[in-house]
């Protein structure tokens, strides 16, 4: 019913990690995958880092179902664009007029796709094993402004709530005989559906502002957090290590070692 649906509750060691550790992993995997310009780098990260982590977390099935779902559209468009229109391609494998499939193009598309898969995979791992509330608490603990955190969390939560309301609005109009079959009808029916949603949302905004103020959202106190976040020296060391690997990868890229 909301973004929480990504989150797969579980008691695995991965679930118990501090959200920031998992965020650091996601960022380090992404940075490294993009910094090292050889296709086996993102591939190894997916196979040797993400895959075992996902298995330990016990979310393998959902992961295997969702990752292709998110990655496929990107991979396909990358192959269409880079595979066919790569400007530096010289080894032509096939050509139709201005469109040419080149070996360089395909290789670049493969690298980019693997990088995107590594990035998506890293963040999907984060979302599947981390409660969004815990992640936000952790970020606020590390200096993210509570207002920013509120906006992010509220968007994750309220958008689905409005979707539910939109469904109610649609069904309420159907219950008054509104026929929503057929394209032309659909367009004509837009107004009765959007009206109550917008008016309802505007009315809600002010009421919600009142309610949030009443719950001390504007209070100048130093905030505390309900969710206790486990952390350990080992995790701190791990985060430093991940940061070091990511930095090293970027330096290698800049200096040109990995080329």
């Amino acid at each position: 019913m909301s973004a929480v649906m990504f989150f797969q509750d579980g008691g695995s060691p991965v679930h118990r990690l501090n959200p920031v550790t998992k965020l650091a992993l996601a960022l380090a995997v992404t940075t490294t995958a993009f910094a090292i310009p050889v296709f086996w780098a993102p591939l190894l990260l997916v196979l040797l880092v993400l895959a075992p982590a996902v298995v330990v977390a016990g979310v393998g099935r959902t992961y295997a179902r969702l990752l292709p779902l998110f990655a496929a559209p990107l991979v396909i468009s990358v192959f269409l664009l880079q595979g066919l229109f790569f400007p530096e391609g010289t080894t032509v494998l096939a050509a139709w007029g201005p469109v040419a499939v080149t070996a360089e193009g395909l290789s670049f598309a493969a690298l980019t796709s693997l990088r995107l898969v590594a990035m998506l995979g890293a963040f999907l791992f984060l979302l599947l094993t981390t409660h969004p509330g815990a992640l936000m608490s952790a970020m606020v603990e590390r200096g993210l402004s509570p207002k920013t955190s509120y906006v992010v969390s509220a968007t994750l939560q309220i958008v689905p709530a409005f979707r539910t309301r939109a469904r109610n609005v649609l069904r309420a109009q159907q219950a008054r005989g509104l026929d929503t079959t057929g394209l032309r009808r659909r367009v004509r029916t837009l107004l009765p559906l959007i009206g109550p949603l917008l008016l309802g949302s505007l009315a809600d905004l002010e009421a919600r502002a009142v309610a949030m103020e009443a719950r001390a959202f504007g209070a100048p106190h130093r905030r505390t957090a309900l969710l206790a976040l486990a952390d350990s020296p080992a995790q701190r060391v791990a985060r430093l290590l991940m940061a070091a690997v990511a930095v090293a990868a970027v330096v290698a890229n800049v200096v040109g070692v990995a080329r």
Binding site: M136, R208, M212, A216, T224, L226
Partner: peptide, 30 residues
């Protein structure tokens, strides 16, 4: 407030956290 939907912060994922919202803002110890 009158409509409980509007009393929900929208930023919290469980009822327990929702109840904590005001207390967190006031800096009440965990």
């Amino acid at each position: 407030v009158q409509d409980p939907f509007n009393q929900m912060s929208g930023a919290k994922f469980t009822v327990r956290e929702e109840l904590a919202f005001g207390l967190e803002n006031l800096g009440v110890p965990r």
